[in-house]
Amino acid sequence: MDCLSTASASAVVSLLEDFSLEMTGKDVPTLEEARDCIPAGTRINITFLGNEDLGVRLAAARAVQQFGYTPVPHISARRLRSRAELEQFLDALRSAGTAENVFVIGGDPPTPHGPYDDSLALIESGLLQEYGVRHVGISGYPAGHPAIAGPTLWSAIKDKTAALARHELTGDIITQFGFDATPVLTWVEAVRARGIDTPVRIGVPGPAGIKRLMTYATRFGVGTSTSIAKKYGFSITNLMGTAGPDRFVRALADGYDPHRHGVIKLHFYTFGGIKASARWVADFRTQEAKLT
């Protein structure tokens, strides 16, 4: 075993520490099945889907906590119909003891359903900390956003991190998923160059069918050219197989420099199911640990 291979494997193991996962309200049964391969305390984000009501979201947050993990409920700004609806959700989270960590996002609707235009408006409302929120996740877009111009995205991330500091809230940046590590790390370096030292959780697509990955990539505006797909490890002309993020995670670990990139961690989008993603992390980390 050469020193380079040992160092690379060690970097992968380090990068897989304190990873986070994503789930929906309907994933609670699968989460329970995956408990044997998810470390206690793991942060698990709970999406804010338009077809799930308060009861479903709250039940998911409670289940995550009861299983020994850290619930991170999402709040979709443009889906909220009123200040009262936001307060109702936050109050329910506080009553359940699951309000300390949230993730705020603008959300899919092009037109706000209520008074909140974007996630910055949620932070500036002052309601988060009033209801016991202490840590807030915000979004980052290394590959850009199909509906938002680049300069606007940079302004937004600077404004949101500044607002968190003003409101004495800690936070992290969770990025969209991608297939090419190089532009992701370049983007993180650009974040640091703007004086933002907030920890970054890099979005990683968990193992899933290639067709499913392509569908989500198209939906979220993530590039999947032939060269990028080949680098990731799948062919866009053959959609019958499955793909895991082995090459992507190794490339991140190889290119990561704490002095240039600051604190980074991994956030897994569980397109192939939360159990599949959690099992992949456990197996891959064990595999790499044997090489160190």
Rank of each mutant, 00 (worst) to 15 (best):
M1P: 04
C3Q: 13
T6H: 14
T6Q: 15
A7K: 14
S8G: 03
A9K: 01
S10P: 05
S10Y: 10
V13C: 13
L15M: 12
L16A: 07
F19V: 14
F19P: 05
S20W: 08
S20H: 06
L21K: 05
L21E: 01
E22R: 01
K26V: 10
V28I: 10
T30R: 05
E32W: 08
E33N: 08
A40R: 04
I44F: 02
T47R: 00
F48E: 07
L49C: 09
D53G: 15
L54G: 14
R57F: 10
R57L: 14
A59K: 04
R62L: 11
Q65V: 05
Q66E: 15
T70R: 11
V72K: 07
H74R: 00
S76L: 12
L80D: 05
L80S: 00
R81S: 12
R81C: 08
E85G: 09
F89A: 08
F89Q: 11
D91I: 12
S95Q: 15
G97D: 10
V104L: 01
I105R: 06
I105S: 05
P109G: 02
P109F: 06
P110D: 04
T111A: 05
T111F: 00
H113E: 07
D117H: 07
D118W: 03
L122P: 09
E124I: 06
E124S: 06
S125H: 00
G126Q: 03
G126D: 02
L127W: 00
L128W: 08
Y131W: 12
R134N: 01
V136C: 00
P142L: 11
P142W: 11
H145T: 03
P146L: 09
P146Q: 06
L153N: 14
W154D: 15
S155N: 15
I157Q: 12
K158M: 14
A162K: 14
H167K: 13
E168G: 02
L169S: 03
T175G: 13
Q176M: 06
F177L: 13
F177P: 09
A181L: 11
T182A: 15
L185A: 11
L185H: 09
T186Q: 14
W187S: 11
A193S: 09
R194H: 15
G195P: 04
I196H: 11
G203R: 09
A208Y: 00
A208V: 02
G209I: 00
I210C: 03
K211C: 04
K211Q: 13
R212Q: 04
M214D: 10
M214I: 11
Y216V: 05
G221K: 12
G221P: 12
T226F: 10
S227C: 01
A229T: 07
Y232R: 08
Y232H: 08
G233P: 02
S235H: 04
L239W: 07
L239F: 10
G241L: 03
G241K: 07
A243V: 01
R247V: 08
R250Y: 02
A253F: 13
G255F: 12
P258V: 08
H261L: 07
H261C: 04
G262D: 12
G262A: 06
L266H: 08
H267M: 11
F271E: 02
G272K: 00
G273Q: 02
A276Q: 09
R279D: 04
W280Y: 10
V281R: 06
A282V: 01
Q287R: 10
K290T: 06
K290M: 05
L291C: 07
